[in-house]
Every structure is written in structure tokens, then in C-alpha cells.
């Protein structure tokens, strides 16, 4: 058991997820119908993506509290660019590209302050999140500005019979696998595990940390584009809770906040577990006012349990 779990703490998260799926299927008879699964995945996908990105930063021993603000900034950029260019399919593509570009820029800013100027990550990414959120309000002061039908129809629909959300999830899995096989991933974990040793073996610690922040912001940007597909409009306050939830998801997935141990696949499962906990509680028929409390207790217990198992 111990050797099986060695470095595979996500197996526990996976077990928890399967149990939750079972419970949910029992409570909600139509849970396993494709349309219900698709709508659930649509709800969970943004957190899944943000949590995957957050993992790279946490693995390097840092933290990114700005992901929520990045989501907002990317959303307002994308909808504004699309609106400014007239709303045809080419302008949608330009909007998506602009959104990703803004994400990359945000990641570079975070990485610059944390890795180059050596600022403390928690305080720095909180400060940059204030700046990003301010810029989002500059671009779009009030919620509104609907996206063209092609955008949200495309997101709610699919390609060759496969729903778009499933394709996005698959693309995220492929990205995880590809990044996980690169020397970059091993180096990143070295930076988080033993930063001084990593530096002494000649790794460019600064560049790796910046790359992690850029990855985090790009995944946040993707999450934002998905959320935009779901809400079909701009909202400068979008995604505010995502930063802290993504950290919970990362920890639930077996990644140590101290850095160096874990991986994004666990975080993906952790995000799904968080979403499923909410689902199960909703369908368990608890009185409405107790739902948040029970959810908070279960999440806290899960976090504590995860830490206990990891310590073993």
C-alpha cells in the first residue's frame, strides 16, 4: 500500500472522487446522463483549469493569489476585443488570442516580481491581483457586453459529436502529460523541493519560477475563456473565489504547499472533488442554510485527511 501510494497521492483523491460520483449518482438518478454530466463538467471546468495552473507555481515553492483577477482581466479583454472588432468569427478568434496574451503578460509580471525582484509571493500576487482587478474595471466598468452567439454556441456545443468542454478537458490532460514528461517539470520540482540545491546544480531557478507563473496565468486565461463561454458576457468581478478554491484543490490533490511534491493531475481530481462535494450536498436535501457549513466542514476534513495521509 505504502509503495503504491508513493508519489501517487492522487490515487486517494481519485478514490474520493469515485465515491462522490457514486453517492451523487444514487442521490440524483439522472446524474450519469450525458447532458447532466456535460453541464456538471461545464460548471467544474474553470476551477479545474485554474487549479492545474496553480499546481506548477506551488510545485516551485511559490503561490499565485492573482489567478482570480487574471480570470476577470482576461474576460473583459476578450469580450471588449470581440465587440470592438465587430463580433464576426474572426473577431472571436482575435478576442481569444488577446485573452491568452493578457494571461501571459500577467504571468510574466508575477514572475518578474517574485523571481527576479525576489518579492514575497503571497503579498506580491495579492498586490498584482489588485492591479489586475483595477485594470479589469478600467476596461469594462460594469457587467455586460454579450459575446456573439458563435462563441457561446461553440462552447455549449461540440466538435464531431464530442462536447467542447470534454475536448477542453482532454486538451488539459494532454498538456499535463506533455509538460510532465519534459525535463522542465523535474527541474520545477527541484526548485520547489530544495531551492538552494537546485541553484547550486546550475538550474536557472528564476527562469523556471517565471515559467511556472506564466503557466498558471495561461491556465487562468483558459478558465476565463471557458467561463465567458458559459456566461456569454463580460464581468469585471468574475472569478473572485477561484484563487483560494484553487489552492484547496491543489492541496486536496496531494501537492505539498511547501513545494516539490505532487502534480497537476491530482489538482484536476481535487477540483472535481470540490465540485462534487457541492453537488452531493445540494442533492442530499439538506436545509439550504446548512449547505455551506456542511460543505466547509467536509472540505476542511478532506484537507486535514489529505495532509495526514501525505505525512504517513
Amino acid at each position: 500500500m505504502a509503495t503504491l501510494l508513493d508519489g501517487r497521492l492522487w490515487l486517494i483523491t481519485l478514490t474520493a472522487l469515485l465515491v462522490l460520483v457514486g453517492v451523487n449518482a444514487a442521490l440524483q438518478p439522472n446524474f450519469l446522463e450525458p447532458s447532466v454530466l456535460q453541464s456538471n463538467l461545464t460548471t467544474f471546468l474553470p476551477l479545474v483549469l485554474v487549479a492545474i495552473g496553480q499546481t506548477y507555481v506551488v510545485l516551485a515553492g511559490d503561490i499565485d493569489l492573482s489567478v482570480g483577477a487574471v480570470v476577470a482581466l482576461v474576460n473583459v479583454t476578450t469580450v471588449s476585443v470581440i465587440a470592438a472588432l465587430g463580433g464576426d468569427s474572426q473577431s472571436v478568434l482575435a478576442g481569444l488570442a488577446a485573452g491568452i496574451g493578457v494571461g501571459i503578460a500577467c504571468g510574466l509580471v508575477n514572475g518578474f516580481f517574485v523571481a527576479v525582484l525576489r518579492f514575497q509571493p503571497i503579498v506580491t500576487t495579492f498586490a498584482t491581483s489588485i492591479v489586475f482587478a483595477g485594470l479589469a474595471l478600467r476596461i469594462l466598468p460594469d457587467a455586460g457586453l454579450p459575446v456573439p452567439e458563435a462563441y457561446w454556441r461553440g462552447y455549449a456545443g461540440g466538435l464531431f459529436g464530442v462536447p467542447t468542454v470534454v475536448l477542453v478537458l482532454a486538451a488539459a490532460l494532454v498538456t499535463i502529460a506533455v509538460v510532465g514528461r519534459r525535463p522542465f517539470f523535474t527541474r520545477l520540482r527541484a526548485v520547489g523541493g530544495q531551492r538552494t540545491a537546485a541553484f547550486q546544480t546550475g538550474l536557472s531557478v528564476g527562469r523556471l519560477r517565471i515559467a511556472a507563473y506564466v503557466l498558471s496565468a495561461v491556465f487562468a486565461a483558459l478558465a476565463s475563456l471557458c467561463l465567458t463561454g458559459e456566461t456569454a458576457s463580460g464581468d469585471p468581478l468574475m472569478g473572485q473565489t477561484l484563487a483560494l478554491s484553487s489552492i484547496s484543490a491543489v492541496v486536496l490533490g496531494g501537492t505539498a504547499l511547501a513545494g516539490g511534491v505532487g502534480g497537476p493531475f491530482g489538482s484536476l481530481l481535487g477540483a472535481l472533488v470540490l465540485g462534487m462535494i457541492g453537488n452531493v450536498i445540494f442533492f442530499a436535501g439538506l436545509p439550504f442554510e446548512y449547505q455551506t457549513l456542511v460543505q466547509g466542514l467536509i472540505v476542511l476534513a478532506a484537507l486535514a485527511g489529505g495532509v495526514l495521509v501525505a505525512r504517513r
Partner: peptide
Amino acid sequence: MEFWSRQVIFGATLLVLMLLYGRQARLRV
């Protein structure tokens, strides 16, 4: 000023303050 520019300046000022003394030790061989 408008709310957004106050926010941006607030965040930027925090970053400048960090520059003055919130920095972490340099890695050394």
C-alpha cells in the same frame, strides 16, 4: 480618481513598498 485607477495605484504602491524592504535573500552558491 475613478475607482479603477485608485486600485491600480494602490496595488502598485504596495509593490513599490515591497521593493523597499520586502525582498527575500538572494540564492548563493
